[in-house]
Write a protein that binds this DNA or RNA. Structure first.
Length: 411
DNA sequence: CGTCCACAGGAATGACGGGCGG
DNA sequence: CCGCCCGTCATTCCTGTGGACG
């Protein structure tokens, strides 16, 4: 019986109108052949990097701009062309793209660099300096010009400090036959304040700023991708414009716009419709947000879930906008109930801040004068959503209807 | 006008499971 | 096997703080 239903799904998909020509071009990591409205940046960065083709080191560059403004696409685009050109003229140029958020630590960045120069290092166990030294030795023997692209570099600096950048930018001094150029990419300009002045000055020998796209520019970008990605005539102008308008209000984020477009298309396809209309875009916006919430909710560590659950119970009991101390009390009660060792208030305070950043809670600092300084905490997502996810959780399902005792003393 | 609440949030340190080279 | 280092998470200790209260 399931088989029949599933067959229906298959048939409907196969016989239904075809909307996508090529889904891949709508994915965020796709690098198109044309990057509309980024010609200036491409040329600018290209001119800075071009000396490597003639065997001299290029300046270090710092690229800055909000998410979805094309920084990554631009640099990948240039690296790709530059590598091709260097192979053509047999210039010893090697480029290496590293996303610092995915790579995570100094150690892992260095071990990735080691891969580039063909040496193997264990993925853990060695001193970071040791890995760097091995990298330098191998690099020097290779006689190449290495371009290291460090994407989302602010993340690495926040977590690890600027030691890596210091080592890397100063590495040239001890290199005989190879040279290193660093391209740093960040969407947070403030992070420069955390840098050692020496690192800062050598990293930002050149700076390129990426302005957010306007709604009109986003429209052009989407149109170009839609031509490749959708069967012509299936995407209405209205739907496309709505995507660009929505993404433009969110600091001109092209990634967001493309996501909206792709998901809207998928929704239309699932409904068996032959056209993507504005309604699909609106649904897509909701779906993206919902998916984001449910997936973060599911992958939360146990204690974070408990903290969130505490806030949920407080809200259920009719209180809105409690302070850290209240949440900690309820949390403590929950821990006792499931016989779990509770964390310290310091830690829970940190967890609350993390949940705030993820948007699952809204925590704002308030001063109550004589009565102290604390955070006022509210749920950031509907109670319904929390319940839906937590009833499937082995620890939390039993707690969802619990009435915290310590709330009685609250007014 | 000083006090003092109820925490915020930084820094240092520790425990832990993993892996190294020797 | 040892001594060392790794990243991660948590603890402990700490200093900082805006403004209502007395």
């Amino acid at each position: 019986m399931y088989e029949d239903l599933l067959n229906q799904v298959f048939d409907r998909f196969l016989t239904g109108p075809r909307l996508f020509r090529d889904r891949e071009v709508l994915r965020p990591d796709y690098v198109p052949k044309e990057l509309p409205h980024r010609e200036d940046q491409i040329l600018h960065v290209g001119r800075i990097l071009v000396p490597v083709l003639k065997g001299s080191r290029s300046s270090n560059i710092f690229l800055y701009g909000q998410t979805g403004t094309g920084k990554t696409a631009v640099i990948k685009f240039i690296i790709d062309r530059l590598t091709k050109k260097s192979q053509e003229i047999e210039a010893p140029v090697v480029a290496c793209y590293i996303n610092c958020r995915l790579t995570g630590t100094d150690y892992r960045v260095f071990s990735k660099l080691c891969e580039v120069v063909d040496i193997n290092v264990p993925f853990t166990g060695l001193a970071t300096n040791e890995v760097f030294d091995r990298f330098k030795v191998a690099l020097d023997s290779k006689k190449i010009l290495l371009i290291v692209v460090l994407d989302e570099i602010d993340f690495l600096v926040r977590e690890q400090g600027d030691d890596l950048l210091y080592d890397l930018t100063r590495g040239n001094e001890s290199l005989q036959s190879s040279k290193v150029s660093v391209v740093g990419i960040s969407n947070d300009l403030q992070f420069k304040e955390h840098l050692d002045p020496r690192v800062l000055s050598s990293l930002s020998e050149e700076e390129v700023v990426f302005r957010p796209y306007t709604a009109i520019e986003l429209g052009d970008i989407l149109q170009a991708r839609a031509n490749l990605g959708f069967v012509s005539g299936t995407l209405t102008k209205g739907a496309l414009n709505l995507c660009s308008a929505l993404a433009a209000t969110e600091h001109g984020d092209a990634r967001r716009a493309l996501d909206l477009l792709r998901v809207a298309g998928e929704l239309a396809e699932r409904e068996g419709k032959s056209k993507v209309i504005e309604e699909h875009v609106r649904s897509a916006q909701n779906k993206i947000e919902e998916d984001r919430i449910t997936s973060t909710l599911k992958t939360l560590p146990l204690h974070s879930k408990l903290v969130l659950c505490s806030c949920y119970l407080i809200k259920q009991a009719g209180y809105d906008g409690v302070i850290t101390g209240n949440v900690y009390e309820v949390y403590g009660e929950l821990c006792r109930k499931i016989q779990l060792e509770s964390l310290t208030q310091r830690r829970v305070s940190g967890l609350i801040s993390e949940l705030d950043i993820m948007g699952l809670l809204n925590a704002s600092l308030i001063n109550m004068g004589r009565y102290g300084r604390t955070k006022k905490i509210k749920l950031g997502i509907p109670e319904k959503v929390i319940r839906e996810i937590f009833v499937k959780d082995e620890w939390l399902s039993t707690l969802l209807d619990y009435k915290p005792r310590c709330l009685c003393s609250l007014k």
